[in-house]
Design a protein around this nucleic acid. Structure first.
Lengths: 206, 206
DNA sequence: CCACTTTCTTAATCTAGTTCAAGTCATTCA
DNA sequence: TGAATGACTTGAACTAGATTAAGAAAGTGG
């Protein structure tokens, strides 16, 4: 029994270890901060193709990926999926719109591989920010960096042709191509799977 | 002389009044906070077509628009401009990438009309955040909201055809069309001015 | 007030990327 | 084992939007 408790403790510690390390790069964390964070984060294993959030429902969590890969996407009226983001270990994801306005989310988030996540329930996130203001800084930095990335993606979508966008993608996320279905990458790039297939062929031939 | 000093004071107070009001919607500001902010913000008038920041140089300011309209844009290798953002009264703009990494900016920001701005020098912004941590919360919220907008724009660029994107634009920014040249709107939408012209014609005929 | 430059439009031609349809592999699962 | 399902490819026909070029309209400045 004691052993079981110890193992449980060890296992949740391991889940959060990476996260604490990454947070420490931006703000200083003492044991109290860590303990509190530990107490509100829900570690979870998700199997391939399982959903964490579903379009139509109000977002419940801000999600931190510890292991594996998630995909957040939007499904339009014609039932076409559009990938908003791939999230691998160390990334945060979640629908800030739904989060802020408590309105139903237009995005779904599911696991592309068996994955591990830490879920931060949104009300807990709010109290975290109130009680431990240093996390304001942390999330300010997270959002600021994310904003930079989003701006770059907009610019690239406007100025680069699909082939260049694809080359850019594999350069920026070299590991993703190995386990993410091409149709999702096509969606992220804003093209059809057929056209991505042609681009790949063309680049192979070179 | 006394009158002149008084008028100057009044004028800078007026510049910052709107800003203080908008900040107060997110965090509580006391007189000390306001005085400090007042002391680091540089009020400026910019004439139409004047630049505030220029691509190739490290960003010096985080910019708050009090009046008029700015445009932040990227110029690609083929010398095509791509509009990142239009900023009207109440908006913030600036290149966070250059800002964070102190690398040359790839964006330029210029005035589309005679405008008024408050410039927050980047080193002052850093000390502001250190000395008055409540501003971490303020900018966390600003960036969070901006992120939502950017995500929506990405999704729309991926899923909507140009005509719908244009309709969406005039719905979201109804006043802009009256004084922003169409070529810039076309650029923002990711199409050529010629094609925007056709879309407008088509919608007129309806 | 007239020259000059910029903005907007129109039309013809062209192309990057889509759609549709069919076929090839793998994988799954009864 | 073999039928079914999903992922990827290939090719032909098609279209949203780009390019080029030219003219009309409207600012802008001297």
């Amino acid at each position: 029994m004691i052993l079981a408790v110890f193992l449980l403790f060890l296992s949740t510690r391991m889940d959060t270890f990476q996260l604490f390390t990454s947070i420490s790069q931006h703000i200083s964390l003492d044991k109290t901060d860590e303990a509190y964070l530990q107490s509100i984060l829900l570690p979870m294993k998700v199997k391939q193709n399982e959903f964490i959030e579903t379009a139509g429902e109000v977002t419940r969590y801000f999600i931190h990926v510890t292991d594996g890969c998630l995909m957040t996407y939007y499904t339009d009226q014609e039932a076409n999926d559009h990938v908003v983001q791939f999230s691998t270990a160390g990334w945060w994801t979640g629908d800030l719109q739904s989060f802020t306005s408590e309105s139903p989310s237009i995005y779904s988030t599911k696991a592309l591989t068996n994955s591990g996540v830490l879920l931060l329930p949104i009300n807990q996130m709010n109290t975290l920010l109130d009680r431990y203001p240093k996390f304001e800084k942390f999330f300010r930095i997270i959002f600021q960096n994310s904003l930079i990335t989003h701006q770059q993606r907009i610019i690239q979508n406007l100025s680069d042709p699909a082939e260049k966008r694809y080359q850019n993608f594999i350069e920026k996320y070299p590991t993703l191509e190995q386990f993410v279905p091409q149709k999702h990458i096509a969606s992220y790039l804003g093209i059809t799977p057929e056209f991505l297939s042609k681009i790949r062929r063309k680049l192979m031939d070179k």
